[in-house]
Design a protein around this nucleic acid. Sequence first.
DNA 1: CGGACACTTGAATAGGGTCAAATTCTGTGG
DNA 2: CCACAGAATTTGACCCTATTCAAGTGTCCG
Lengths: 209, 209
Amino acid sequence: MSLRPEEEGHQQRFGQHVHLFCEGDDAKRIYELINGAVMLYKLLPDGRRQVVELIGPGGVFGISAIPVYECSAETLVFSQAVVHERAVVERSSELFRRLSAHLQTQFCAMHEHAVLLGRKTALERVASFVMHYVPGRGGYGCPGPRGDNSFNVKLSMTRQEIADYLGLTIETVSRAFSELRRRGIVAIDRQEQVLVKDICRICKLTGTR
Amino acid sequence: MSLRPEEEGHQQRFGQHVHLFCEGDDAKRIYELINGAVMLYKLLPDGRRQVVELIGPGGVFGISAIPVYECSAETLVFSQAVVHERAVVERSSELFRRLSAHLQTQFCAMHEHAVLLGRKTALERVASFVMHYVPGRGGYGCPGPRGDNSFNVKLSMTRQEIADYLGLTIETVSRAFSELRRRGIVAIDRQEQVLVKDICRICKLTGTR
DNA sequence: CGGACACTTGAATAGGGTCAAATTCTGTGG
DNA sequence: CCACAGAATTTGACCCTATTCAAGTGTCCG
């Protein structure tokens, strides 16, 4: 694990549930996720936690406006990331540009998430969460119900992590999943595997359309 | 109001409550706020609204990862902004860099706001909201209660706008302000003027410390 | 097979929402 | 300066959703 700065960053691998940095640490490095998934979260002094962002492949994190990280980062699954020295990113125009470009995508996602946290019901939150894992559906320019209307989603997050992401309690998340199952919209086996049986129906429950 | 692209953008003035763009409009322009205040919001189909970001001087908005704006923008007060053509920003490395730099600050603010929306009580949200308007206190490296412990805040938002920002109803916001007044922490005259009589006490109510 | 942990379910509670009425504020015109 | 109308805000009463607390059940390991 050499730490000397390199123009093109330094690729690293991380196991599941590895803490990459903590809120308050020196913000020395900027991460560019190649594959896997990372959650960014913040804690309140009394222990309440909010997952503020979920990072997928291509995502950028570890950027801070102040000299220390403003949130903590933890891998959800085995992940690979290019680790850039902060100083290098600030010097390299090319790199800065590439990373900033992806931040725009993340910006939109965060706005969408603010709507979820501020205005959606528990069932809408969980439905929206599941829909995120259904590729090419529900978003801008959704093709509608042509072709396969079912999809198998692997959550790779515990109920607690989902709850902290959606601004709910673990019990409420569980109840929402049960409600979706009761309505025949999803089937759940092995807890992390959610078979969405009717994409259009769950999409309508998101509140977004 | 000439619209031809210029390298250094085009400064414009806007009155209070002017709509700058709507969700779904062609994302042709990027705004850099010089002074004033702008709110960005999203609407759900049933009319629920969430103010996803408050933009202050220096703030950048109108950036979108897709070809259309993903939210709407409205001035809260008289404002001045430099309006850049999107294409120009994408070509100019210098400009892109300046705008992106400020986006990092906004990123941190949005993370903080996600915590507010997902995990804070009504009173904590309103207290946090008021604290945003108290300069140099409550944040990273707060000096504590030396010097003046009171400050006069001008909200320049209606209760409805505050409610939509904090993910609450107008009634709940009103009750929270009344509660702060009942406890002697603030004094409210003329609705938009909030005299914070004890900064430290309201800071403790934010849940952040 | 058993033990630990994660998840689900149930019952009671509380915080914030809804609906309705009262009050205050703002702007206008006399 | 004052009266008035309309809007915004505040307050009250009630309700509902999500939380809390407390079992129960399931799942994944060794």
